[in-house]
Amino acid sequence: MTESNYDEIMQLLCDRLSSLTNSGTQITPETNLISQLSIDSIKLLNLIMEIEDTFDVSVPINALTDVQTVRELADLVHKIKSAS
């Protein structure tokens, strides 16, 4: 998978996260999903479903235990997409 796909993933995540959070925080790759965006677990799980549909991949929610920042989430999706 190419760089532009990675950028596409990052862009989608930033867009969706900014509409899901009401904290008004500027979203960057280093933004922490829980402590900075206060995204509750259900919203995050539903976002994963959307990501799965957009990129036609399976993203197991247990893999989220290693994800804290937007970049880590993008890396995870990118890794799965590249392997598929």
Partner: peptide, 26 residues
């Protein structure tokens, strides 16, 4: 599911088209 260590995929509540989509992807 978490205790099992298996990969956990959710489908939309009672939505069979959504469930099939996720089965197919597996």
């Amino acid at each position: 599911c978490i205790l099992s260590g298996a990969d956990i995929i959710r489908f939309k509540h009672n939505d069979m088209a959504d469930m099939e989509k996720r089965l197919r992807r597996l």
